[in-house]
Nucleic acid binder design. Structure first.
Lengths: 148, 148
DNA sequence: GAAAGAGTAACCATAATAGTTACACCCTCT
DNA sequence: AGAGGGTGTAACTATTATGGTTACTCTTTC
């Protein structure tokens, strides 16, 4: 239990919602989404909450019959949108403590590294922006269809 | 204490070694490196050990007078080399458990996501490959020189 | 009033990281 | 031979993130 699978969880959930939508099912409950992920409804609600707050998803109704649904067409929902909404941690951190300020390297290296790390983040975002939820779902269904 | 600052630690150490080299100091001990980072010699040895094993660094001598030194010119040492030697964790993981195999999404989504995540990794590597230790040191000294 | 749904707080287990101590081992120097 | 300066590494601690789980509140439909 070390890594970070929230992007996976969110993308899986959104693809599943889109597939349900295509099949004429407008919404899914968090229990139904959790079933596909072999996870738990509370985890789904926790993971999807920031997407709801950012307007990627919404809840249709309340009480019995309520459920999650995409707030935008799946073809207009990129993985970068999901990544950004999740506020994923950056892959690289600067020093845990301030380095020695009387050393030329310790004094000046932090903004240099921060700039490089920002570039890396931009590349990650750009790579994720190339794929939409619709792309992922279409590729999944086309390249790895259920047997029989 | 959540993130991962090992790339920062390693790049800082390598820059400091290169600066020492330019000043006519062929090696630095882990205690001297730790001093610049406001860290501890054991952490330095732990972080630098995989770089030594991968041939980016070596130890000159043993016993008194021993110390770390770059095994290659700093201009031929990219941050991607460092990142790779450190075996940094990927930013995104797949599902913590196998998703439901009777769901079309659960059945087929993992290789699709794995492919996208591999692309992201490649972009990270490419961005880091654009900078060498010499670049980082030169930029640090030029853009953020010690006052007076 | 019962039941289904989301929203959330609280707690547990696990793992990674940084920090730290302790000690074994190797070598140089006196 | 012994002292001391180095690395190598195991072991332990504290902190934090993550996933998992339970338990509860609130709202709405039936």
């Amino acid at each position: 239990m070390s890594g970070n699978s929230r992007l996976t969880t969110a993308v899986h959930a959104l693809c599943w919602l889109e597939l349900a939508h295509r099949r004429g099912r407008p919404t899914l409950t968090s229990a139904q989404i959790a079933d596909s992920l072999a996870s738990h409804p509370v985890l789904i609600r926790r993971t999807l909450a920031p997407l709801r707050d950012r307007g990627l998803l919404d809840i249709a109704g309340r009480g019995p019959g309520a459920g999650w649904r995409l707030a935008r067409p799946a073809a207009e929902l990129s993985l970068a949108d999901v990544h950004s909404a999740l506020a994923e941690p950056a892959p690289f951190d600067l020093h845990p403590h301030e380095p020695k300020q009387t050393c030329p390297v310790g004094y000046g290296i932090r903004p240099v590294l921060a700039h490089i790390y920002a570039e890396v983040e931009a590349e990650i975002t750009a790579a994720l922006a190339r794929r939409t939820i619709a792309d992922v779902l279409d590729t999944t269904l086309a390249e790895h269809p259920l047997p029989q």
